[in-house]
Nucleic acid binder design. Sequence first.
DNA 1: TTACAATTGCAACTTTATTGCATTTAAAAT
DNA 2: ATTTTAAATGCAATAAAGTTGCAATTGTAA
Lengths: 146, 146
Amino acid sequence: MTSRVLNDKDFAGLLQRNQLKVTAPRLGVLKIMADRDSAISQPVLEKLMGAEVDRVTLYRVLKTFEEKGILHKVIDLNGTAHYAICSSNCSEHNHQDEHFHFNCTQCKQVYCLNDMHLPAIHLPEGFEAASVSLSITGVCNHCSKE
Amino acid sequence: MTSRVLNDKDFAGLLQRNQLKVTAPRLGVLKIMADRDSAISQPVLEKLMGAEVDRVTLYRVLKTFEEKGILHKVIDLNGTAHYAICSSNCSEHNHQDEHFHFNCTQCKQVYCLNDMHLPAIHLPEGFEAASVSLSITGVCNHCSKE
DNA sequence: TTACAATTGCAACTTTATTGCATTTAAAAT
DNA sequence: ATTTTAAATGCAATAAAGTTGCAATTGTAA
């Protein structure tokens, strides 16, 4: 369901390939993001990073990663920012133009649904689409078991 | 493109039909929302309402309207809340379960795309969809002319 | 006209996010 | 190894968005 771009754990290499310096805050974020099958919210990420990393630094790391196409940002239905690892076909200024996410109303997790495709969407005259994002709300596989 | 549920301007009647008291803040919001072909952001709405209405009251009016199915809330890609009039088939606890929106990257407006339908979406085992929201980013008809 | 629940306004507060600036540091050049 | 420097971080201050508790007000039904 989620591509495992970072499973090789060559975080330093990933940073270098993107012309980014290898620093502790960046490695910390990557370590947390890897091996997750759902997106992580900014507040949770902040707590997981702990006090060693400044909050502002975290914001900037995330912004940089988003610009480089390493992560993508998803705003959930409550307006909370979530971050997830981009599938491998994302690169700088060339994000995958279709993103699909599942928002669980119970646990509030956001899952990335990759490998899906939408049929063409007909827009009114004059409207030009650059990217499409589909957000599904419901109950996830973990929560539906209870 | 947008249904004109409020064009009759019977705002008081609308409130009464929803068991809501007819008050100045509520009428003010409805007056502003009517006759728009795009959703309106919370910050803009706040400015349009002026200082006569308390900020907290506005939040509560919007929340009530959303619960009653009069308005629906859309979070744009920057995390900003926008509100738009629900098409007529929304009612309390029975919202239209598919919402489509167009986010213009130039003017930041959010347009509601009604009268669209999506083909069935296949979710992984255990996931149950309650509602679907499609968000398209691009340039709107006004901005594409320039 | 009264009564009462619904609604509003105010104050205080929390969370999320941004900006400017001084300091530190990764990594390239010497 | 050292030096250099642009990149990155940390800190302080601030802005914006949203929430909560409570007292005062008001719409509406009796």
